[in-house]
């Protein structure tokens, strides 16, 4: 990892909500071309960590950097990140295409319509392109959420439970997509409570427990294989 650029770096990240400590001095680094999987039970702090990495939530202490610069300090820097949050972030009364085109336009993309159409096709949404998002199933909305978040081809991809609601075909497409991202030096951080969904991907697994990465060191380089935590060659 040392010869690759560190894309995402969290240092001594702590987040406190009221009297509840959600993250406790978390250190995390992810280099270009790396897939990092955050696992842990509900309430372990996965979503909060991802939100801090995306600059959506301000940490109580510690800092997050994207390619060495403070995360989200400049609005333009947010082009570096594509995030699929736990909720779909799609507008229910816009069509599938309007949602993705809106995202492309907000990212300042030229040919927003063409880029949106490419992602709509890739996500298997072409038959639904002109359907209102409110009429879509959970799985279809998740596909739209993925297209919306990735339409600008960001170098940093953050995903919170990206497999939620996806059928086997869409989940396989997503695994292939993540593998392709890895090949193209994109960094992917994804949180899941079900590591089995990520089988077929090579990366590192961080297990969060009560806001800490446990065990903190050493972080094993593993492929997220058929058995969670199974050690494989990276």
């Amino acid at each position: 990892m040392s010869d690759r650029t560190i894309a995402v770096q969290a240092s001594r990240l702590t987040k406190v909500f009221g009297s509840r400590v959600v993250l406790r001095e978390v250190d995390l680094e992810a280099a270009e071309g790396e897939i990092v999987v955050l696992t842990g039970a509900n309430g372990a702090g996965k979503t909060t960590l991802l939100r801090c990495l995306a600059s959506l939530t301000r940490p109580t202490s510690g800092d997050v950097r994207w390619f060495g610069r403070p995360a989200g300090a400049e609005p333009a820097a947010r082009r570096l990140v594509g995030m699929v949050p736990h909720q779909s972030c799609i507008y229910p009364h816009l069509t599938v295409r309007e949602n993705v085109v809106f995202a492309a336009r907000m990212q300042g993309l030229r040919e927003a319509g063409r880029r949106a159409d490419e992602w709509i096709a890739a996500a298997g949404l072409r038959p639904y392109a002109h359907r209102l998002a409110t009429h879509l199933s959970r799985g279809m909305r998740q596909r739209v959420a993925l297209a919306r978040a990735l339409v600008h081809d960001p170098p940093i991809v953050l995903m919170d439970e990206p497999f939620a609601g996806l059928d086997a075909e869409a989940a396989a497409w997503l695994v292939d997509l993540l593998a392709e991202f890895r090949g193209r030096s994109r960094v992917v951080c994804l949180a899941t409570h079900d590591p089995d969904m990520t089988q077929g991907l090579t990366g590192r697994v961080f297990h969060l427990q009560s806001g800490r990465i446990e065990p903190p060191e050493p972080r094993r380089v593993v492929a997220t294989g058929h058995n969670p935590g199974e050690s494989l060659a990276a």
Partner: peptide, 18 residues
């Protein structure tokens, strides 16, 4: 706030003032 769209909006490369 429906469907978490606020988060999506905050992630776009525009300032809060915009």
């Amino acid at each position: 706030r429906e469907e978490g769209c606020w988060d999506g909006l905050m992630l776009y490369p525009i300032g809060a003032a915009a």
